[in-house]
Design a protein around this nucleic acid. Structure first.
Lengths: 193, 193
DNA sequence: CGTCGAATTGATGTCATTCAACTACAGTGG
DNA sequence: CCACTGTAGTTGAATGACATCAATTCGACG
């Protein structure tokens, strides 16, 4: 099942069909195999990535060489390091594909043009930005205030389709725990049930 | 020492003197004693708060009744729950004063008018928004990937003036640890030095 | 001086990490 | 078709980091 970017823009972002025509040729579409890196630490993030089909991941690697996944992006999601995109400063993050994926690649001229052309799009873009902040704040709250088990349950609830598509150690990475710990947590949960 | 909002707008946000005059009467200034609550959970956050003098704090309270401080805002800082402000949905956070403070209160009409009047202001507002996201992402990275001791050192480095102005247990709350743990961390650091 | 909240200290508990061993399974080359 | 290899996942034992609870101590302020 794929979710075309056109459909997304017109349904969710309030872009009209005629507006879309003007934007259409600025959209680069790419089909990628698993494991392709779209953004590396040190590069400026020049693109929004919209996922039509497949699964991306947004993560960092700390000094000790450990990956920390900040976000999974399945179908219909946008991924971008906004801090880098808007400031033109090098990113501290990586983006890559976890599955063979079909994506739409949007650059700054596209975003600017769409924002000018469609106030609705600008609003929508702002809204998902606010949403993003809200997610980040919630995540901080959970990291500070809840146990790994609670965070896992919350993750499963919110991303149940993702759970079955990624290896368990990546979920551990997202939760901020080791794969071993997650394995044990799952075991105790299974016994309770 | 106070840092007037006018100075801030003209120096940092690129608003001209004549533009400021048009905006001036939309700015509400308030002087508050310590402990005044500016935003409570459940309310929509209708204002940006700029701190001319004093110190604000942005925090949540979890189900167990524990406070988690997301942000301190000393002079020259802006505080707002953007997720609530832009979506008009109830906030999950509190904002209050930690010291007697003088603040500028900005409502949506002000932000809209300033954005229209001054593209520079719009840009600036966007930039601090990106910055905010960057901070949140960094904080998540630290919560996931570093020890409480490292987080404390990082906090002291970045907010050294704040450190001396707030009780230690609030710093612990910001770091996501107990006051006791912070006390011990400080002790071991003092012995090393 | 007495009081009250903040900070420290000690004893103990809990949760998650680390390191190591082992199982399960998929992919590769003989 | 089977051994070989590598990766994911599980399990155990030991360790470490931080929490909890309780008892003092410290310090500001009435």
């Amino acid at each position: 099942m794929t979710y075309s970017f056109k459909q997304y823009l017109t349904q969710y972002a309030g872009v009209t069909a005629s507006q879309f025509e003007q934007l259409e040729d600025k959209i680069e579409k790419r089909s990628l195999t698993e494991g392709k890196v779209l953004l590396s630490e040190g590069q400026v993030c020049h693109h929004f990535f919209y996922v039509e089909k497949g699964l991306l991941r947004f993560y960092s690697i700390d000094k000790r060489g450990r990956e920390h996944i900040l976000q999974f992006a399945p179908e219909k999601w946008l991924v971008v390091d906004r801090a880098s995109f808007y400031s033109n400063e090098p990113s501290e993050f990586y983006i890559d594909t976890l599955e063979a994926s079909r994506i739409a690649v949007l650059d700054e001229p596209f975003i600017d043009m769409a924002s000018e052309l469609s106030p609705q799009f600008r609003k929508y873009n702002e809204r998902i930005l606010q949403n993003h902040i809200r997610q980040l704040q919630k995540r901080i709250g959970r990291l500070i205030g809840t146990s790994a088990e609670e965070r896992y349950l919350n993750f499963v609830e919110k991303y149940k389709d993702v759970v079955s598509r990624v290896p368990q150690w990546m979920i551990a990475s997202y939760l901020g725990i080791t794969p071993e710990s997650l394995s044990r947590i799952r075991k105790t949960l299974a016994n309770q049930a």
